[in-house]
Design a protein around this nucleic acid. Structure first.
Lengths: 341, 341
DNA sequence: ATGAAAGCGCTAACAC
DNA sequence: GTGTTAGCGCTTTCAT
């Protein structure tokens, strides 16, 4: 069942059939209806592949992620799917978890004509990638590329602001000796969260005590041992900010092991708002990160680059701001239990 | 940069260039090398779109899922991605979460020539879907379609067996009054898990006590209230099998609320092996479900249907068997803590 | 072993 | 308004 068949049955040329499906052209309303009618009966839809060959448009968006495990990536995909769904676009998902590396996938996507544009998230955006992005014919939107990447289109979470509100909340509680278990030094999110922490303290004239800063790696384990070390010092912190929720969970375990009460003995906050934090007692006070929205905003922007609503060559950076989820771990009185039922 | 350009530079016809890239044809090894060499230098790759128009092959697999949130779906995608990656195939992911329904997506995928085959998971496979599947020109593999769906290709988790080993383990501990919080009656997984529970009891001559069976809906809430009801009866269970881990978590909360000790006062087991179960104390004894493998096995089979290694019209059903993850909640002595660090 | 040419199904000038 | 026709980039008979 192809365009010729429909043309024959409708007694028109294939061009007319094509016009009937590409609404904008000039074609008598009557003929269009008749053609669409016939097509409907024969269950005919123009082939996107063939159309793609002609128009260089495939109606599909490439999504490249560093990995495919974990809430974060799932939420990104979810956000993208929600948005592409509305515009009848499809998503081609690829991750660089194993042998294939990001660059290769990106090049393949771009040069093959498989996709009209790409949403790209890489563990770290380097020179090579930015060069590729800038000289690409197809639009590309980066996700979480780091806020220093400014000459491209980049949507990212405002980690700095998230850390600030987190710390200011702790300061509001009156804590003075605020410690932090950071993320890995080379990680950009981690750096921003640390910067927010440090600046928030400074802003409120609270001295940052180096011995209350411990470098972690975002793992439960790091949270566990980080907490242990912090609490076994002579000068203990009265509050600890964990750079992510996983480490906060490790800290909870450590607290339980050492019989330390949260928040009475020490307050605790996290970052990410993963599902798990709702289930522990007291519920963790953490920073909500709008990941689904990150995905949908990024792809919405990509779509408007594709259809020409915004100039693909104009750099654009948007930071999605975060919010604080209040649990009991910071010292607030909340009934965390109701939230899960 | 297209095939003509390469042909011109290599001083051959486009047919020869095409042959050079489609290894099987007969072409002088020398010419092939020269052509490939030139293509390499010019960074040329044949367009999959154009090739698709000719061959009706797109090297992409459609993946249709009921939703995109949650560990389960992520793991499925992960498994599929791992496998398609190896074969240089791409995956087009779509979910039917919102307005688009499964049938529409399926039809679109199949009729549009966008994909070479489909991995399909629907909340429930009905007559309409099976009909579509059977008359489809492109191969389709179902996931978790229910074990009664036998005239198609279907990979599913062996829920029955999982429930059996779970219950037999409890029986091994010596429990006699084993209760269950089931899943929703209309859910197929739930039915199988209940059947495994019931048959395991019967097999070991333990009477099933109707008042120890409570219907839940897989939610934390259902687990909470189910546990409460079970434990407030005159004849309490000495062990409770929750049809999924989420309900088990609810049960943990209920136990904590009511000051009931697990496993001393009552043993508890779950099903699914979600990440969370590793973090609670005592760690939950649950059934590990090989979801990643489910995805990769399904797509591997699909790929061999596509390349003709197996007959696409021969029905095939495979049940992936599950394993028991021993935590402390069933009464076993384990140091559950080490497992997370 | 290689080339010529006819598609694959559609779009988009251009012509009428 | 509608038809004709030349591509889009590739594969694949059929010749040679």
């Amino acid at each position: 069942m192809n365009i010729h068949e429909i043309a024959k049955r409708a007694g028109v040329s294939i061009a007319t059939v094509s016009r009937a499906f590409n609404s904008n052209s000039l074609i008598k309303d009557d003929t269009r209806r008749r053609i669409l009618q016939i097509a409907e009966e024969l269950n005919y839809k123009p082939s996107p592949i063939a159309r793609g060959l002609s128009t260089r448009q495939t109606d599909t968006i490439g999504v490249i992620l560093p990995d495919l495990v974990g809430e974060f990536f799932m939420d990104i995909i979810h956000g993208i799917d929600e948005e592409t769904d509305k515009s009848d676009k499809y998503i081609l998902v690829s991750s660089s978890h194993s042998k294939r590396n990001i660059i290769e996938i990106l090049i393949e996507f771009l040069s093959s004509g498989r996709v009209d544009g790409v949403v790209l998230m890489a563990p770290q955006i380097n020179k090579e990638i930015t060069k590729l992005v800038k000289k690409s014919k197809r639009p590309i939107v980066l996700i979480n590329a780091g806020k220093d990447i400014e000459d491209v289109v980049n949507f990212h979470i405002d980690n700095y602001q998230g850390a600030c509100i987190n710390i200011e909340h702790l300061i509001g509680h009156g804590y003075k000796n605020i410690g932090m278990i950071t993320g890995p030094a080379e990680n950009w999110d981690a750096q921003e969260r640390y910067a927010g922490f440090s600046d928030a303290l400074e802003k409120h004239n609270i001295s940052l005590q180096p011995n209350l800063i411990i470098e972690g790696d975002f793992s439960i384990k790091a949270g566990f041992y980080g907490f242990m070390r912090l609490m076994s010092q002579p000068e203990k912190p009265d509050a600890i900010f964990c750079a992510n929720d996983m480490m906060a969970l490790g800290a909870y375990e450590a607290a339980k092991t050492s019989n330390i009460q949260i928040p009475n003995d020490v307050a605790l906050t996290g970052f990410d708002d993963i599902f798990l934090t709702r289930l522990i007692q007291p519920r963790l006070t953490t920073v909500h990160v709008p990941v689904v929205e990150l995905g949908s905003k990024a792809v919405r922007y990509l779509l408007s680059m594709i259809n020409g609503d915004v100039d693909p060559n104009t750099p654009y950076v948007e930071a999605l701001s975060t919010g604080l989820v209040i649990g009991g771990s910071c010292g607030c009185k909340v009934n965390s239990f109701h939230s899960i039922l």
